[in-house]
Design a binder for these strands. Structure first.
Lengths: 227, 227
DNA sequence: CCCCTTTTTAATCATTTGTTAACTGAGGAA
DNA sequence: TTCCTCAGTTAACAAATGATTAAAAAGGGG
């Protein structure tokens, strides 16, 4: 699983070693050499995982960790703390501040890779409820099935996500940009016309023998799910 | 969640410490001070979880672990390895031999309890019953046999665990990552494509003369067991 | 050393996706 | 009303993505 890994570390030799190895694994790597900047960049780039030195100039790893963990937007980025060998009590402190794993220098690249993999694939808790309904539409997030009038409907992944998003706030009108941000993702760029196409596909799919259309077009504003 | 914990450890001071703490948590505790005896007792008592010292007189923890993990009847008992501090490479070896978790001495009781809880939670739900059925599929957890339409099916260990996991929550779609975490274990790192291969083998195995396929592929989401 | 299982790899196959461009229709202005 | 313009709709297609499959490589145990 290629991911974006951020390294906060002041020893350049370690940075380049890590960078080399991580890129070989297919990850995208950014880094920063001081705490202040690291925090700023992390918030800007929103990486998938952070390798953080315990000791950093001007803002310690612990502080960054605390800061991130209390911010809803960033508290689910896994953090691996890097510390010098032998500081056993640091381990406890690291976990207390919210680090997800802990590696002592010097570490084997193999082990680090393993831990990274493990953290990256750790299940994200899905908070939303399992089955949602709207009018004669039912969507089951556990079995990934969608029904209209108890008849099963086949949707592609994007149409599924689109409908799933609409159904969270029925009747609310979303602009194409909002849909792109919420369904496709913040940092993915596609033409806004693409939304139209998927709206059409979704409409076709959920349009079963003389039922209501369910998706409303609001001219020059966007789309909404309603009766 | 009270359970039966077995301790294989030769230092009596550690045994009594562990025993005290585990019993305070409500667990039933047995122990043995040498490898030979430990293995015998484990097979006799079939505990819910094992705490095992890496170094034991006359039969090492690794050997016991290997022995148990290749025995269908015992390979699902979670094992936590206990090792002296600083032996980093042992960690890798421990996981390779099939240990489910790894703790270095000295350890905090709090951390150990957390890990025990986590492993028990993962392993427990299967204890509900020894024979489970789904459609025309029957799996016997005691004898480790699988039948389809009363005809016995031969599955490799991984396929067995995979099917066993699926059958706990039929119809539920699991991602490859979830399957890796739950069937292979949190600490084992294989490519997620490997899952596909085992799914295929499982499919082939349970596909007896014109019966339903039973395993559904959900593109970009995962797999599920259903009719 | 041979056999069996697991894992990786790579080729192939199938579906989904994003884009483009032509088409349609609503609504405002004359 | 009629025409014009602009936004939305539709269909077609190429590219990308994801799943399947077979076969080779890697381990592990007897």
């Amino acid at each position: 699983m290629p991911a974006h890994v951020f390294i906060a570390e002041d020893e350049t030799s370690i940075i380049s070693l890590l960078k080399y190895n991580l890129e070989k694994e297919g990850h995208k790597v950014s880094h920063s050499e001081n705490g202040e900047d690291a925090l700023k960049q992390i918030k800007l780039k929103h990486p998938d995982l952070i390798l953080m030195d315990w000791m950093l100039p001007d803002l310690s790893g612990v502080d960054i960790c605390k800061n991130l963990k209390k911010d809803k937007k960033f508290n689910d980025i896994p953090i691996i703390m890097l510390t010098a060998k032998g500081e056993e009590e640091d381990k406890v402190k690291a976990f207390e501040t919210g680090a997800d794993d802990y590696v002592t220098k010097p570490f084997s690249q193999k082990e680090l890779n393993a831990r990274i993999k493990s953290l990256l694939r750790r299940a994200k808790p899905q908070s939303s409820s399992d089955i949602v309904e709207f009018i004669d539409l039912r969507i089951d997030r556990v079995t990934k099935r969608v029904y209209r009038k108890d008849k099963e409907i086949n949707l592609g992944p994007t149409e599924f996500k689109l409908l799933d998003f609409f159904i969270k706030n029925p009747k609310r009108v979303y602009s194409r940009e909002q849909l792109l941000n919420n369904v496709w993702g913040e940092n993915i760029y596609v033409e806004s016309r693409t939304v139209d196409v998927h709206i059409r596909r979704l409409r076709q799919a959920i349009n079963i023998e003389n039922t209501k259309p369910l998706i409303r077009t609001v001219r020059s504003a966007g789309y909404s799910l309603e009766s």
